[in-house]
Design a protein around this nucleic acid. Structure first.
Lengths: 360, 360
DNA sequence: CATCTTTCTTGAAAGGTTTTATATTTCTCC
DNA sequence: GGAGAAATATAAAACCTTTCAAGAAAGATG
C-alpha cells in the first residue's frame, strides 16, 4: 500500500495518480483490492477451487459484477498450459460441402464454450503446416483437420489431441471420422447399372485424396462385380471443383461410344458436368445421365435436379467435434474410427436407358 | 541441477529427476541458456528490437532453429496486450452468401498472419453478446462482425477496433462496409419494369435487417418513380432462407391478379420461389418471372437460371478486412463507410411480358 | 482454557514473453 | 594508452492468472 495523504490537500499535491489507464480491462487484482480480499481468494471464488465462506463469497461476486470483470483468457491459458480454443483446418470454406461440417463442429464446441480458429489451406500442404504451427502456438485444447493431400500430420505426445476428418492422411494413426466413401461409390454404380447403363464415364477427384479414390474404388468394384468393364479413358481425374468437372465432362462427351451416364465423385463436378452437357447441346438425362456425390442442398434445384449420393456433412463435423471433446476430457481409449453412412438420393438426372442399347 | 549419482546404482536410488516433462514446448529461456546468452538478447534477435552483433545473432538463430523453438503466442499476447487474432462474427456460415465473405477476410488476414476466430450467431443477439465477450477476453487485434438484428455494438475506447459488415446496427457510428443495397433494389425493379411487368410481388427479408429494408426501399422507389403502385399484400416478409421464401411465394401466387413477377431480396428466397412456382404447376418464367439478389454461384444452374442482382461477397470481406487492418495499424482517420456496387445479372428467370397485359 | 482439527484465507511462485533501465564492451580520437 | 561516446548485452519488472504451501481463524474436544 502506498501511503496516502489525508483528503484535504488532494487538489494541490497533484497526486502521482495513474495516468487514466486507457480503459484497460478489469483484472482480478482490482477485484481483490475492491473487495479487500486476496488475489487467491478471488480466484477460488471464481473457480470454486476451495471453499470460501458465504458472506465473503458474495462480496467477491458482487464486486466482480459491479466492476464488470471478465477473465483474461491469455493469462489463464498461459498458466494452465492450454486455452479453450479449437483449431479447425479445412481446405476451403467456399466449397459448399464444408460449411455444413464447420457448423456441426461449432454447434458442439459452442455448448462447451470452446472457440473455433478457422484456417483454409486450399489443399496446400505448406499452408497447412504454417497454420498448424501457428495454431499450436496458442496452445489450443484440440485440433480438427480435414487434411490436405500428401500432408503428414503428427500428433505430438504432449500436444493437443487431433482428430482427422473426411480424408485420412498418409500414415495417420489417430482418431478419424469419415463417411463410407467406398460404399457410396458402390451405390452410385449400382444405381446406374440398375437403370441400364453400361457405358459409363467417371469424373474422379484428385487421386491422392483418400475420399476421392475410395469413391472411385467402390464404384469400380461394383462394375467389376457386375462384369461390366470400363475403359481407362472413361475415367477422368479432376479437382473436385465445378470448373474442372466441366472440362472433364467435355472430354468424356467426345468419346466414342459416348457414355450414357457420368458419375462425378462430388456434386460440384457433377454440376460442371451438367453445364458441359448443356453446352454440348445435349440433354440430361435424355442423352446423358449424371450422378453426383455429396447431396448439397443446392443440387435439388439444378436443371435437372441432381441424383446424388448424400453424405451427412453436419454430422461429420458434429461427430468429430464430440470425439475431440472426449479426448480433451482426457479419454485415453484406443483410437477410434467413426464411419457415417451415405444414402442414394434419387432425383431426375439419371434416366432408365432404353433396352435396345442393353447388352444381350 | 540436481546432483546425479554415478550410473551404476541408478536403478536403486530412483533419482528425483524431473518426471519426463510431457514434451512441453521449448521456450526462449532454453534458447538463451543453450546459446549462453541472456533472455533479452534472444528476444531482441527474434524481434529485431535492438542491434545485436552478427556472430551472436547467428548463434542465437542457429539455436532457435536447432531446438525448433516456436514462440508462445499467449505470453506474447499477455505482455503486448493483444494477440494476432481477429474475431469474426457472422450469422451462419451455412448461408451460402457468407462463405465468400469469410474467405475474403481470411485471405487478407492470412497475408498479415492474423488468425480468425469464427462465431455463428444465428442472428441471435444474446449469442452475439456472449461471443463478443468471449472474443474480447482473448485480446484480439480487431473484430469483424455482421451484426444480428437489434444488436447494439459498442466499440470500447481502449478495446480492439471493430468493423461492421453488410448490415448497420442501430446507432452504429464506426467503420462500415456494405453494398449499395438501395441501388440494387432499384435495379431489380427497373429490370422488371423494362420487361413489361406491372403486377409485382416482393419477398422481403426480415424488416429489421438494414440490408433487407434498403433493398425493399430501393425497389419501391423505382416503382414509385415509374408511377406503378404496389399493393401491401404483394409484399411478403420472410426470413432470408429458402423455406420461408417458398411459403411466401406460395401466398403471392394465390393473389388475384396473380403477380407476373416476383422480386426476392435474396437468392435463397428466390430459389424457394422457384420451387413454389414449380409446385403450383406453373412455369418460370413463362407464367411468373423471378429475380433474386446475391448472385450465388449455384443460381447459375437452377431451372431456370436465376436472374439476380449480384453483390460481391468476397470483396465485401476483403475490403472490410483491409479496413480493419488499417485500424489495427493505428489509423485514426475519421470513420469510413465503404459501399460496393451491385450488378444486374440477366439470366433466364425473367421474361418479357406480352404487351396485351400492359397498361395502356 | 488450552490444544488439536478443520476450514478459510493468504502470499508468493510460476507460466513465457517484451521492454526498460542499467551494465558492459567496443570504438574513436586525441 | 586513456577518456568519452556509441553500440551492444543483460537483469529484472511487468502482463494476469492459477495453485501450492503455509498462516490465521474458527470450531471441537478434553
Amino acid at each position: 500500500m502506498t501511503k496516502q495523504e489525508p483528503a484535504p490537500n488532494r487538489a494541490k499535491t497533484k497526486p502521482a495518480a495513474e495516468p487514466v489507464k486507457p480503459a484497460s480491462r478489469v483484472t482480478m487484482q482490482q477485484i481483490a483490492r475492491a473487495a479487500s480480499v486476496s488475489l487467491g481468494t478471488v480466484s477460488h471464488v471464481l473457480n470454486g477451487t476451495a471453499g470460501v465462506r458465504e458472506p465473503l463469497r458474495q462480496r467477491v461476486l458482487r464486486t466482480v459484477k459491479s466492476l464488470g470483470y471478465e477473465p483474461n483468457e491469455l493469462s489463464r491459458g498461459l498458466r494452465m498450459n492450454r486455452t479453450n480454443m479449437i483449431g479447425m483446418i479445412i481446405p476451403d470454406i467456399t466449397n459448399p460441402f464444408f460449411p455444413g461440417v464447420v457448423r456441426g463442429i461449432e454447434d458442439v464446441a459452442y455448448k462447451d464454450s470452446y472457440r473455433l480458429v478457422l484456417c483454409n489451406t486450399d489443399d496446400d500442404p505448406d499452408k497447412e503446416r504454417t497454420y498448424l504451427g501457428q495454431i499450436r502456438s496458442f496452445l489450443p485444447s484440440g485440433i480438427l483437420i480435414i487434411p490436405a493431400p500428401d500432408s503428414v500430420i503428427v500428433e505430438t505426445p504432449g500436444g493437443p489431441p487431433v482428430v482427422c476428418i473426411d480424408r485420412r492422411p498418409e500414415g495417420w494413426r489417430g482418431d478419424f471420422v469419415t463417411v463410407a466413401n467406398r460404399e457410396g461409390g458402390y451405390k452410385a454404380a449400382r444405381h446406374l447399372l440398375e437403370m441400364g447403363h453400361r457405358t459409363i464415364g467417371v469424373i474422379s477427384g484428385p487421386s491422392h485424396l483418400t475420399n476421392a479414390s475410395e469413391r472411385l474404388n467402390g464404384f469400380r468394384q461394383c462394375l467389376q462385380d457386375a462384369a461390366v468393364v470400363i475403359n481407362p479413358e472413361y475415367i477422368q481425374e479432376a479437382l473436385f471443383d465445378r470448373e474442372s468437372g466441366y472440362t472433364s465432362a467435355g472430354r468424356l462427351l467426345q468419346l466414342l461410344p459416348r457414355p450414357t451416364a457420368i458419375f462425378a465423385t462430388n456434386d460440384l463436378m457433377a454440376m460442371g458436368a451438367l453445364l458441359a452437357i448443356r453446352d454440348a447441346k445435349l440433354r440430361c438425362p435424355r442423352d446423358v445421365s449424371v450422378i453426383g456425390f455429396d447431396g448439397l442442398d443446392q443440387t435439388e434445384l439444378t436443371d435437372p435436379a441432381l441424383t446424388t449420393i448424400y453424405q451427412p456433412g453436419y454430422q461429420l463435423g458434429y461427430a468429430a467435434a464430440r470425439l475431440l471433446l472426449e479426448r480433451i476430457g482426457g479419454s485415453a481409449d484406443p483410437r477410434r474410427e467413426i464411419v457415417l453412412e451415405t444414402e442414394l438420393r434419387i432425383r431426375n438426372s439419371v434416366s432408365r436407358i432404353n433396352s435396345s442399347v442393353r447388352v444381350a
